[in-house]
Each structure stands twice: as C-alpha cells, then as structure tokens.
C-alpha cells in the first residue's frame, strides 16, 4: 500500500486518537506540574481618625484576569507529586525516622491517601489475578467434560458476570451481601453472629471486593482457556494415558503446558485490568475501607471543587503503574515483531 493511500485510510482514526487521547495526555502531564493561581492579595493602608492600619484584601479583578490569562495556573514542577496527597515524601521520611518497627512504619504509611490506595490496588491486582486464572481453568476443564447438550446453556450463564456493567454487577452483589440481604443473612447465620456486617470491617470489605473481582473476571479466563482446550493434541493425551499418567498428571503435564501461552496472555491482560479497579468501590460503597488509584482520581475530579491538578498527578502516577505492568507485553510484542521481520 502506498504511503499516501495509507495516510488517507488511517487519517480519521489517527485524528480521533491524536485529538482525544494524545492531546489530553499531554494536557494531563502539563496540569500535573501546574497548580491553580493563588488569589492576588493587595495591602491597602487605611488612615482614619484613630491612626493608620494595614488591610489585606483579595483583589478580585486581578485574580480573575490572572486566572483567565493562564488557565493552567502557575508552574510548580514536581511539587504536587511530592505533596501529602501523592507521594508524600516528607511524611514518609518522617515516618521512617520516627517508626521503631516495620509495623509502625506501614501503619503510618496507611494514613497517607496515596499509599492507602496503592496497598489496596496492589493487593486486589495480585490476589484476584491468580485466583481467577485457577478458577477459570477449573471451569474450563469442567465445562469441557460435561454433556454437549447443556454446554451452550452453561457458557451463556458463564458470560453474564463478565458482560454485565461492572457498577451494576457490584450493586447486585452489594444488595445481596447487605446484612438484610440473602447472602448477608446467610453469613450471619453461618457465623452465628447476628451483628456481623461485611461493610463494617476493612478486612471483610477487601475480601468482598476480591470475591467480586474473581466473579467478574473468571468468565474471561474460562472462555479463553476453553477455546484453548478445543485445540488440545489428543495424541499426547493418549500417549500420556498409555504411559500410565493419572488424570491429575495429564492436566499437570500435558494440558497446562499446552495452555501456558494463553495463561500468560490472560495474566497480563488481567493484571492491567485489575490495576484500574474502580467501579466496585463505588458500587460496594467501600471507599471508607478500600480506595484505589482510579478512585482517587475520580474523587478529586468530582464534587464542586474539581481539583484538576491533583487528579492529573494521580493520573500520571497511575499511568506509571500501568506502564510497569505493560512492559512485559510490549517486550513480547517487540520480540514477535523482530522474529517476523
């Protein structure tokens, strides 16, 4: 294809991505190093019959003119990155010096919003991803073994938790798990504790969100693994069986190695997707016990104040995290590309 033809074919989509992904990204970077102008103060000396006194007032006009002239605000470099709401360098150093043990140090870190969100985001990402892979694999092996007649129905039902809007899915579970809902009731009955509330404890809230995460993402792993199982080399299974491999050994030494590329694929995709966990926190109304990086951004942007600079800085830190998770994928794609050409 000629360069000019390619250009015209690619123009609309390229333009859309340029204007609404790349430029906003640059704008986010710029915002993260700017902060809104402070009000312009003027000091006026008022002299009356009882002597002169100095008064400091906000010069409304000058403030407005300054804010309109430079809507981005004033340049502050990396100050916002290091402030208390983000990396909190000073507070971390203070905690490091004053804490006698690791436990106290981490407790102190837990009081800083960014590290609190980071703790939940990382815990969520690195517990949900392995569990959903194992769970998805179990479902795929199970569905592969059941009668053809009901397979279609089982696959249909399995897709539901994944397809449904995350916010709606978490709300549905949230209402069931409410202490007056059916699951909440059942758990109270099982634990023989009528006052047990999943919403009141941080630990149980985290478990609840992780269970939701697995419930929501396991179908994706299932579908991918199930497709992989359809291309299973039957002769290898056959020979393993002749060699006396038990069913578990067949799964361990034939099926899992065959699915390994797919397992890597699902793991990489899910690490990135779980890192952006957000809707369940809103749906489960769990912000008091668990916050995530995306939730911090959303929280800064919402409400009357709309702290754009703070949100932009959180965005940059989130993108940085995603970039770390994405790097193995990029490395693999690059290797593939070099192999082809």
């Amino acid at each position: 294809m000629k360069h000019s033809t390619f250009f015209w074919f690619f123009l609309p989509t390229g333009l859309a991505m340029l204007l609404f992904i790349l430029l906003p990204l640059i704008s986010v970077i710029l915002q993260s190093v700017h902060t809104p102008h402070e009000a312009v103060l003027v000091t006026v000396e008022n002299c009356g019959p009882f002597g002169c006194k100095k008064e400091t007032t906000i010069d409304q006009d000058a403030t407005r003119i300054l804010r309109e002239a430079e809507p981005l605000g004033r340049f502050v470099g990396f100050d916002i990155y290091f402030d208390r709401a983000h990396l909190a360098v000073a507070e971390v150093r203070q905690a490091w010096i004053s804490s006698e043990s690791w436990g106290v140090f981490f407790d102190n870190l837990g009081n800083l919003p960014f590290y609190r969100a980071m703790a939940f985001t990382l815990t969520f990402t690195f517990t949900v991803t392995p569990i959903l892979i194992v769970f998805g694999l179990m479902i795929a092996l199970g569905v592969n073994a059941i009668s053809e007649k009901i397979k279609g129905l089982v696959i249909f039902v399995s897709l539901l938790p994944m397809i449904v809007t995350p916010l709606i899915g978490s709300l549905i579970l949230f209402w069931m798990i409410d202490s007056r809902g059916i699951l909440g009731n059942a758990i109270q009955w099982l634990a023989a504790d009528p006052d047990l509330s999943l919403k009141a404890s941080t630990g149980l809230t985290w478990v609840m969100l992780i269970v939701y995460g697995v419930w929501h993402s396991a179908p994706f792993a299932f579908v991918v693994f199930y497709a992989g199982l359809q291309t299973l080399p039957m002769d290898q299974i056959e020979s393993a069986r002749i060699d006396g491999a038990s069913r578990w050994e067949q799964v361990r030494y034939v099926i899992i190695p065959h699915l390994m590329p797919l397992i890597t694929f699902v793991a990489l995709i899910q690490l990135m997707d779980n890192f952006r966990v957000f809707e369940p926190i809103v749906g489960f109304n769990a912000a008091a016990h668990a916050t995530s990086l995306s939730w911090i951004i959303f929280n800064d942007l919402g409400g009357e104040t709309r702290q754009l600079s703070a949100a932009a800085t959180s965005s940059m830190l989130t993108i940085f995290g995603v970039a770390i998770l994405l790097s193995p994928v990029l490395w693999r794609t690059w290797q593939d590309f070099k192999g082809k050409s």
């Binding site: 952006r276 951004i297 754009l308």
Partner: peptide
C-alpha cells in the same frame, strides 16, 4: 479515567 482531567479544562 486518567484522561478525564485532561478533557475537563
């Protein structure tokens, strides 16, 4: 959501 603050202004 990381892009949203770039859109708003």
């Amino acid at each position: 959501i990381t892009l949203v603050s770039g859109y708003l202004l």
